[in-house]
Every structure is written in C-alpha cells, then in structure tokens.
Design a protein around this nucleic acid. Structure first.
Lengths: 142, 142
DNA sequence: ATTAGTGCAAATCATTTGCAATTAG
DNA sequence: CTAATTGCAAATGATTTGCACTAAT
C-alpha cells in the first residue's frame, strides 16, 4: 500500500467501466482490472502479455489497442509519454507527474501537489492550462 | 529577436558540426543550418520538406533521419517529445522546457530558470538528475 | 585503397483499420 | 434482429537498416 493510491483499487473494474459509460466486455474488464492493479505504466504490448492468459478466450493485440483507447477516451486511464516510439498507460488519472529511474527504467507517480505552483511562474504571456513534469534520476534503494 | 535565443545563430553550421566532431557534409550542413535557424521544433519530415530544395543534390529521408540522430548523439540538437508517434527536434540544447499552444500547436521554449527549484521538492527518496516540464495552454496573442 | 556517408528500397515496430464472424441485448 | 465488439490480417506511419554507390582522405 502506498501514498499515491488513487483508491480505484477499492472498486472493481466492471463498476468503473459502467460508471464511465463503457460496456464491460470480458476483455475490457480484464484489461481494466490489470490497469487498476498495476503501477508499472505498461505499454499495450505489456498489457497483452500480462493479461492474455487471464482470459478464457484469446485476446487479440487489436483489442488491447482498441480497449486502451476506449479506456483513455472514457477517462479511465491516461497516456504517459516517457520515451519515443511507444505509449504507456496509467490508471492513476489524478493530476500527477512522473519520475523515471534512469537505472531501472521504473516509472513512479509524483503527486501534483509536490510541484504545484509551476504554472504561475510563466507570467501572463502564457495562459497555462496545465503542465506535465517528467523527472529522471534514481529512486533511493533500487 | 527574442529572449530565448541560444546565440547559436551567431555561428555557422559548419563550425558547430566540426566543434562537435561531426564531419560537415553538405547534407549535414544544410540540416544543421536549418535546425539552428528555426524555433519551430520540426519533425524529421518537416526538416526534409524544408531543406530538400536547398541542396544541389537530392536529400533522402534516410539521410535526414540519420543526420538528426547524429546531431542528437553529438549534442548539437535535442529530442522533444510532445505527442505520441513522432519525435521533434530542437537546436536549443540549453536546459529548458516547452510550452505547447493548444490552439495553434506552436511549441515555445521556456528557459530553465523559470522553473528552477522543482527538483528539490521531491525530497530525498528521489535523486533528481533533471526534469522536463511540458506546459500546455495558450500563448497570449496567437 | 580505405573509410565514411548517402540513397534507395526493403524491413521493422508500434499502432490503426477493414471486414467478416461473434456476442449481447 | 440490430448494434456493438472482437479477431485476424492487411494497412499505415514513423523510423531504421542492408547494401550498393559515391565522395573524401
């Protein structure tokens, strides 16, 4: 249990899908379930590999991509861009930033309130709607 | 003239390539030249289109990609990730951040000293080597 | 001559899409 | 029955790579 918990874990995936207007098919439920329980910021390929066996029926790559897009559009998950060439996903949809451990590649969520005032620093030539901070360095003890 | 100028404009592309240990072929010089004179954060395709005619000989897509990678490895330019699926490049290699105008798509450099202290906020469980801030919003008067 | 750099076309990787088959209401 | 979803395979888009050719030392 950690302090970045979004509390989504307390709900089951099916309820979350329903509450976001997404029809809970078995594939979607399993993918949502996986996303809600991991903090690993997986790629589509990661999700496919992790979830493939958990389903009675086969799960196609296309469905993983379609589902991740559906979940993103519905606001259940969010995209994270940390590296060129592939998209990662994060079920923590609260306002937050990311820390990439340059040694391990691990990606850790950083709550927004740690870096709250940045937008105000730019002055009024910029109307800041939001910002993303991507930290990189080392997580102590990894 | 703007306040984000890196002063690279004062040098010619050939000198910059030489000083970074990159052999200044005609293709590289023209690409470097273009990169040093634009603030538009172009993709490889953008560079190809902008530079193609400026050369007596043909310029291939492969050479644009190869050259941008060479320039990046040599520290002449830097990658900028603002959107999934493609890489943008920036000849401003000073420590800085980016602001994306959500209306126009325009990308503007933000000097690092505008957002200097962020790394310190994370506390000592994170050894911060650096960070990138991607702002999004609207640039006044665009 | 040897090595590096270029261009073309083919290959690769991540992702999307068309469409027929399947499932749910 | 009708509409939505899935899977497969083909298509796409960005980027990389193999290899023959050219340029420069």
């Amino acid at each position: 249990m950690n302090n970045l918990d979004t509390s989504n874990h307390a709900y089951n995936a099916e309820q979350i899908l329903l509450s976001h207007g997404v029809k809970p098919t078995p594939q979607r439920v399993v993918i949502a379930q996986y996303m809600l329980h991991t903090e690993s910021h997986p790629t589509a390929e990661d999700v496919l590999m992790a979830v493939a066996d958990a389903l009675p029926v086969a799960l196609s790559r296309a469905t993983v991509y379609n589902t991740l897009n559906t979940l993103k559009d519905a606001g259940v998950i969010r995209e994270v861009l940390t590296e060129p060439g592939r998209v990662r996903y994060d079920a923590n949809v609260t306002d937050h930033h990311h820390f990439v451990d340059v040694k391990t590649g691990q990606i850790v969520d950083i709550p927004a309130d740690k870096v709250e005032e940045i937008g105000k620093l730019l002055g009024d030539q910029f109307k800041v709607h939001g910002f993303k901070v991507l930290f990189f360095g080392e997580v102590a003890g990894s």
